[in-house]
Design a protein around this nucleic acid. Structure first.
Lengths: 152, 152
DNA sequence: CAGGTTTTGTTGACGACGCAAATATACCCC
DNA sequence: GGGGTATATTTGCGTCGTCAACAAAACCTG
């Protein structure tokens, strides 16, 4: 029995296919929209108290490096979707705060995304099956990425 | 009710966190190893009849563009893990065929990966829960990415 | 079988991300 | 308070991936 035939490898491959497949559908949904990490950052901001989060917290919650976050926030700032503001209690830190334009955009994109997710994911499953599926995801997520608990 | 608060968005976010989290654990497992797409390509090759696949089939099965596959196979070829061979029946096509070194490497990396997957994913779930989880993933995969049915 | 269309693979230009190094600030301990 | 360590962010550089344009071969249709 070769290790590459192990069904656990296939199980992870299946998870990857599902995630990548959904990510592609979401990307096609709003063509000139945001990349997945940009969307994720904006969603996290709009859901956070004060609509703001420190850059390093964004790095922890997403799967990006801190330099990746720096550049991503640079881009969002150039588009007027986000503003940097200094942290009053720690002069090393800056907040990224979503702007009104950013909040409006993310709400509109989220509405499109819900349609796509419903069509290709949640809508395919019975409520019970979806519940159990999400419960299983949480079990794994809490082990593998416990720092992600503040939103999407 | 704002669209960005829709639980379906959160559901997809959860799926993303799980996938990214596991991908990071797998990447850390064998430091100087292969990237995830490289691993995926090699696994697909070693599982295919004749240990070979046409480049365009690799592009279909993975989530890469054809140019991405060209360059990925370039890299694997430089490392001696894969060879290109012409397709006898269609002179436009080439096969990527895994070499003995490639097969050996992927088997060893797969053994490491199984440990990681078991520790952070399959081993966390009861057999029944895992079965239902995989069944749900297949339901979604068959809708979202039907072309992926030849392996991991 | 000639001409147009589709498919396969490669290349150039470009963007996004990670790592490592640099900088600035905060924290801790004597 | 001073010196050393830890943390937050930015920047330089290399790598990897996409998109658009291209070349070659296959297919298809009159």
């Amino acid at each position: 029995m070769k290790a590459y035939e192990d069904p656990r490898i296939t199980a992870f491959g299946l998870l990857t296919e599902v995630h990548n497949g959904l990510a592609i559908r979401l990307g096609q949904a709003s063509p000139n929209g945001l990349s997945a990490p940009e969307f994720s950052v904006l969603i996290r901001l709009v859901r956070s108290p004060g609509s703001r989060l420190r850059l390093s917290d964004l790095a922890t919650q997403t799967t990006l490096s801190t330099s990746g976050v720096t550049r991503l926030v640079d881009r969002l700032e150039q588009q007027g979707l986000v503003e940097r503001e200094p942290c009053p209690t720690d002069r090393r830190s800056s907040y990224a705060k979503i702007t009104a334009a950013g909040a409006e955009l993310i709400d509109s994109l989220a509405a499109d995304s819900v349609k796509v997710i419903d069509r290709w994911f949640t809508g395919l499953l019975s409520p019970e099956r979806l519940d159990e599926f999400l419960g299983t995801l949480r079990i794994i997520r809490d082990e593998v990425h416990p720092g992600a608990t503040a939103g999407s």
